[in-house]
């Protein structure tokens, strides 16, 4: 708590609130990941952490560093952009992989592949 002690009280409260919000959402996402029953339900759980969980903590970090270093600190935007762009790719690929595997194994309650001979 060396550099953080120089923050004004209102900014401290704001940062504290953002940190609590972000970490709680991430924790809830992880809890859902463990708790939910089917894989497709679990696919939704980490998005809590990657959307507002990440955004809130990045915002808190950005506010703090901008104040402490006395210049606008935008490094966090790069991480935010990175997470924002990469999460969909990950989740889409995982979703497709899961569908593919479930269909290959003939699991019930899975929507059939679009009817065009072969699927990729």
């Amino acid at each position: 708590m060396t550099a953080l002690a120089t923050l004004p009280p209102w900014l401290m409260l704001l940062v504290a609130a953002l940190l609590v919000l972000g970490s709680t959402l991430t924790l809830l996402g992880a809890f859902g990941l463990l708790h939910l029953k089917s894989f497709y339900d679990r696919l939704h759980a980490p998005t809590l952490g990657t959307s507002w969980g990440t955004a809130a903590i990045l915002l808190a970090s950005m506010l703090c560093w901008s104040w402490v270093q006395d210049r606008v600190f935008v490094h966090e935007l790069v991480i935010g952009l990175c997470v924002m762009v990469t999460t969909p790719v990950t989740l889409m690929l995982l979703g497709r992989a899961a569908l593919h595997r479930d269909r290959a194994e003939g699991q019930p309650d899975i929507p059939p592949a679009p009817d065009r001979g072969e699927q990729d």
Partner: peptide, 18 residues
């Protein structure tokens, strides 16, 4: 795809281009 995946509650599984 980014929009639908970033919003919790919807997950994009498969797009059929044909």
């Amino acid at each position: 795809a980014v929009v639908l995946t970033a919003t919790p509650g919807t997950a994009w599984l498969e797009y059929d281009p044909e």
